[in-house]
Design a protein around this nucleic acid. Structure first.
Lengths: 345, 345
DNA sequence: GTGAAAGCGCTAACAG
DNA sequence: CTGTTAGCGCTTTCAC
């Protein structure tokens, strides 16, 4: 039951190990009869090829890495990353790849993880979540010329292959939708300002306002950090400015903000309307169901894997980019359903 | 910048590759002077050892796998698994291991994943989440004598190394706490009945009731599946039985159930008190903050990694088990804070 | 303290 | 269609 090698089963069948190798790898040029006997021996003995030996010989491992840098913070407090991971995992399953997960929890983690991902022979490619412009790990990984695709537009997109959603357009649509409902004092709760996601969504917000001839009021812009609690706190500041609607750059922040609104004794959407971003399950768990921008998170992960496979197989030049579309999902928090609909829930 | 081998840097320094190997691996028996020169060369060239070659030579890879079987369902709809994964990832970081993630999404995935985890030379050990008694993957993995620890007590614990929390005691404490508040018609929303977690928590519930001389009323037991929506549905059935308190076997289900109670126009905890299980962030995001049983999820993951390391290094026999304690976290949903406290939020 | 040599288990030309 | 021959890059006795 153990430690069988190609050689062992070759002897068993009475052929050379290269023949066995051929059938294991489904190569042509093996007589049906021999193939059958080899297959039987493999089945009977429970032989499994040794991955390390194969990697060494072929120079690729069939493993790709997913790096979530420290700036992602408590990765899994926001449902976005679990979903993304799931999408990536499915993408790997589809293409017979193994996924290795590198969660950077601290500076020390970073030091320990770096050599592991830069070691040759271990990883065929890397999926790297972008975040702060100064994530050490992103800088360093660039030097080890390992095929990698960035998840989210990096600050310096030059020469980088990445995948992102069209955040500008998405935020534009969200804000525009609020404007269409008649709101004029539209606040926004952003993510951390040192990320491209935040900048892009802010840009979309500005564009929509500008397009409607509504001047931007800086007092209506509050910075959060994508988490529920940060949304709550941002909203507490915002309430004094009396917005009639809020565009939150994540569902989690929207939920936090809505909590603050409730506590202030105001009604949603009558007093303040809301639109979120992501469309994670949480969006439908609130008392007032959240209107939001749906990101194709699972598909995003799957596409990311495919993009990585592309550059692994066909070379990393030229840099490629994929921008995915989002979708407006109208529920109750934006007030669009107020008239003529019988609200309940 | 590429494809450097031990040999290359050996030549550079003018020593034999075995000497370089020694300094790379921090072996003794290298003169300080030579060690310094080698280190410098390594640094200057940016050499990184090849993982595949090393794995082949040493017969271990420094990679462990985490298998989440299909029955876990949409792993990441319940915050439990993300947190667990995070704990495991940190455990790996602490011990310089790489974590590979195997998410089984479908029967086909199972077929594709199995050969990958049973391949020798790839994985030093396996962490396997238990679930349904008939998870194909668990059965099959047992045959490939790879060191593995089960996450959660399996139905057949014979000879298996596993780690679990004391679910019976935890559920007992939860139910007991409800009894202590004076409730007598205590309902429970369980997880799927074909899992040991569910059975254990049910047992604790029964024990507490029995200990207080309260007869078990089967009408007060509703089966869910750990998800929010299943809690919501279970509660809809339960409401007719007029419970005065509910013990939900997960926070997600508790939240769903509380939603159903609200929709029925009943108050929490005045009309129906609640206690959940897990203590995930969600528990404090509800209008009425959830009293719950805190599982040490992160620690659980870290401990699991350490247990796996133990059996990798010291042999898998005898089977080991670790049972961790839980903690009752009293918030607002159980009514314990009702008297004399000024509730807000 | 350092070098030589064998070998980890597999793949991939190249003959035949 | 099948066997032979070289490696893949590293570790690890064993001499010296």
């Amino acid at each position: 039951m153990a430690e069988l090698t190609l050689e062992d089963i070759a002897k068993l069948v009475g052929v050379h190990r290269s023949t066995v190798s051929r059938v294991v790898n489904g190569a042509p040029n093996v007589s049906p009869e021999v193939r059958k006997r080899v297959l039987k021996a493999i089945h009977d003995t429970g032989y499994h090829p040794n991955a390390a030996a194969r990697s060494l010989a072929t120079q690729h491992s069939g493993i790709i890495g997913l790096v979530l840098p420290q700036s992602v913070g408590s990765f899994f407090s926001d449902p976005y990353f679990p979903l993304l991971t799931q999408g990536i995992a499915f993408g790997c399953n589809n293409h017979d790849l193994t996924l290795s997960l590198f969660l950077v929890g601290s500076k020390e983690d970073e030091e320990k993880i770096l050599p592991r991902i830069s070691r040759r022979g271990m990883l065929d490619g890397l999926l790297i979540q972008t975040g702060h412009p100064d994530d050490l790990i992103i800088q360093r990984v660039k030097k080890f010329s390992i095929p990698s695709v960035l998840l989210g537009r990096p600050f310096d997109s030059e020469g980088n292959t990445y995948i992102d959603v069209d955040n500008v357009q998405a935020a534009f649509n969200a804000t525009r939708h609020l404007i269409d409902q008649g709101y004029r004092r539209i606040a926004t709760i952003t993510g951390n300002h040192d990320s491209t996601v935040t900048l892009d969504r802010l840009e979309g917000y500005h564009k929509a306002l500008g397009g409607a001839g509504i001047p931007v009021d800086e007092a209506l812009v509050a910075e959060g950090s994508f988490t529920e609690i940060s949304g709550y706190q941002a909203m507490q500041k915002l309430i004094a400015t009396r917005p009639d609607a809020v565009f939150a750059a994540s569902d989690s922040m929207a939920v936090g903000a809505m909590r603050a609104v409730h506590e202030a004794g105001l009604r949603i959407p009558e007093d303040i309307a809301f639109i979120g971003f992501d469309d994670v399950p949480l969006a439908t768990l609130t008392k007032i169901k959240l209107t939001t921008i749906r990101q194709p998170i699972l598909k995003f992960g799957i596409k990311a894997v495919e993009l990585l496979i592309d550059i692994i197989e066909n070379g990393t030049k030229p840099a490629r980019r994929i921008i995915m579309d989002t979708e407006l999902v109208i529920r109750d928090s934006c007030g669009a359903n107020l008239i003529g609909a019988n609200q309940n829930g």
